[in-house]
Write a protein that binds this DNA or RNA. Sequence first.
DNA 1: AACGCGGGGTC
DNA 2: GACCCAGCGTT
Length: 348
Amino acid sequence: MNITKILINWYSINKRVLPWRKTKNPYHIWLSEIILQQTQIKQGLPYYEAFISKYPNVLSLANAPESEVLKLWQGLGYYSRARNLHASAKYIVNDLNQEFPDTYKTLLKLKGVGDYTASAIASICFNEPAAVVDGNVYRVLSRFYGIDTPINSSKGIKFFKALAQDIIDENNPGDYNQAIMEFGAVQCKPANPDCNLCPLTQDCVAYRNNNVQELPVKIKAKKPQKKFFNFLVFISDSETTVLEKRKGKGIWENLYQFPLLESDKSLTEKSIKEILKDYKLTKNSSYKLTLFNQDEIIHKLSHQHLYAKFWILNVSELPQAVTPVPISKINDYAVPVLIGNFIEAFNF
DNA sequence: AACGCGGGGTC
DNA sequence: GACCCAGCGTT
């Protein structure tokens, strides 16, 4: 038996029961695929349920405000996925008359849908033989065929896509695609795969060469940068605070945070007070400054390590030119996990 | 071709 | 600490 048939057989026996495996509704499949980009099933599953429940179809998603979509996405990370999901829903409703794209080529026109996601939707929903290549597929193919071309080089990306396309089951592309991914997730795992109960060992080159653990090869990422974040948590006598919407291209675009002082190194109370002189805080310029966390909170992201301090700033009135947020409404705003954890811990 | 983008998980 | 996860868009 060849690898294609073995994988499909294995999948028919071993596949996990998941809500998006009960449907071919392209809206549902699309939503699941966006949520699962760079995200494990365990983490994404509750978000899928919440989105299906709140937005049962593409029209309801398109009609929602972006702020509400981001709030529902809160905690999942890679927030451009939520913004692009929402923008694409509007595109489908406004430009495509609510008709979901049904080919690899037209699916690619959706923001946030690249080669992987277009192939997944086209194959699962529309039976188009487009091979998916995700982290699982790279691992299974690099080991089975013994290929040490780096999977994140342009050469590797092309090579593995062509290889996957070569072995796809043209008559059953959706099941084949899901089979090889599920196999990578459950059997051919990154660390300590149990090759003793693997149905592919007969022809697995890495198994024969005893270098399963060395594959796939990946060009190493550079180390994350350190950044120092000082948040100013205003609390006025009338129980209001200040949140600002993050703009620009960096992390957490369009999410909310307390006013931020970013620096190259840790700021002291003295330097915070120095900066506050320029704020013209209140009519009588009196305030009380308290550091909430004596030790910096270290928030680790893939590309940055954030060292955060939350400064509580009790004032009689908020500064001019800010929109006050009633503290009672603070949980209506989409915030990064770092901010959300603080709000929960501080308990206002 | 290289980089930025989150947060949770394993080993 | 290193690495991974149903990747994508930008430069």
